[in-house]
Write a protein that binds this DNA or RNA. Sequence first.
DNA 1: ACCAGATGTTGCAGATTTGTGACATCTGAC
DNA 2: GTCAGATGTCACAAATCTGCAACATCTGGT
Lengths: 228, 228
Amino acid sequence: MAATILVVEDEPAIQELIAYNLRQAGHQPLCADSAEQALRLVSNALPDLVLLDWMLPGASGIEVARRLRGDKRTRSIPIIMLTARSEEQDKLQGLETGADDYITKPFSPRELNARIKAVLRRRAPQMTDDVVEIGGLRVDPAGHRVTGNGEKIDLGPTEFRLLHFLLTHPERVHSRAQLLDNVWGDHVFVEERTVDVHIRRLRKALEAGNLDQMIQTVRGTGYRLSAS
Amino acid sequence: MAATILVVEDEPAIQELIAYNLRQAGHQPLCADSAEQALRLVSNALPDLVLLDWMLPGASGIEVARRLRGDKRTRSIPIIMLTARSEEQDKLQGLETGADDYITKPFSPRELNARIKAVLRRRAPQMTDDVVEIGGLRVDPAGHRVTGNGEKIDLGPTEFRLLHFLLTHPERVHSRAQLLDNVWGDHVFVEERTVDVHIRRLRKALEAGNLDQMIQTVRGTGYRLSAS
DNA sequence: ACCAGATGTTGCAGATTTGTGACATCTGAC
DNA sequence: GTCAGATGTCACAAATCTGCAACATCTGGT
């Protein structure tokens, strides 16, 4: 669960306090004390999560969030905003702008860690570049490679994303709508039956290693990837 | 845990915010911005839960709750009311009127989800995706799997829902009408005797592990699932 | 033992869901 | 512009689910 976490906070004391706690928890903090610096750091290397103070000088916390959400490259980075207790209003606006959660100052390290963990768990699974392997089926997102029992498997882009999603969420049924949301993306207008076709193509590609039976149909519900 | 959730809220921004979060959590939001629209939607199709703003124009939030509680068809739908921090009074009145819980604006997605889950678990256990196990019979809603003493059991969609409902409401008798309401859904016109047939199919599937005796007939009343 | 009502069991036709191949369109590389 | 690969959609076949009715069996009361 070691994550790179960008801390955007103008108050040096609080920034250092947070960084210390993150290091304690095994994370890798990156610190910025302004919106500009934050965006520069992000353009260099994508963090896994952003802790964003809402009350930066110039009220630019909101702007940072908006920019992160506006760019396709950074859209899916989870954001937790830090707010003072009095800024009740901002919470709504913040959540609206796309923050995943908020946390009210002052907060305990325990609380901070719990929220980080939860947000990462909710958002992360198929976002990481970790190699995933289940029952001889192996996907390497970084290298965009798939092998079945060591044999190379060729997949088209969509089949690749589909398999990757299924592998990172195994042993549970996904409806066609859920698959469309997670593999094709939100707000995409595509027939549900199209999922069937790509499942078919995926199974066909997996036939080589007799792994096609890992993709199971659950009649009336959807599809499931299972080790057995 | 995919539930249909009716959101009754006149403020468009908040309504959209809530809907977004519900979708994120895998639910299916239905939105209404007035008491009238809410009641109309409910008469169409029963939601699994209602998020109800207490301060609708005309203070009709209370009225909506009263109507929902007054109609037999909607009486058991869980209601969570949304209140502003200052409206302390209303909380009491709301809980009195039959709300299952309240949540104070502004609230975090985390908090909202936690409450929804808690209320659903209390009022409609079969809506959650928790694994249920009684006397060696085990149902995993997320994976859509059933095992009896470790052995895999195959069920059709209806038998699956039926067993899931019985497992989440064990040790009590359900009339055929209740089973039709809860497993088939209301607004469905089906002979009561059809329940018998599906009970039969369920028992047959459970015979493998000698678990069919867990489904018991209560003559003149209905059926019951018991640890035997 | 007999009866009436309740429940168990079965086969089936119609409805629904899914698998599959074919085809039209789109996209980016050259 | 052309081409190859990728993608979405459709139509038809195959698989399966469902509700029902008909008949069999059971239960409790008399």
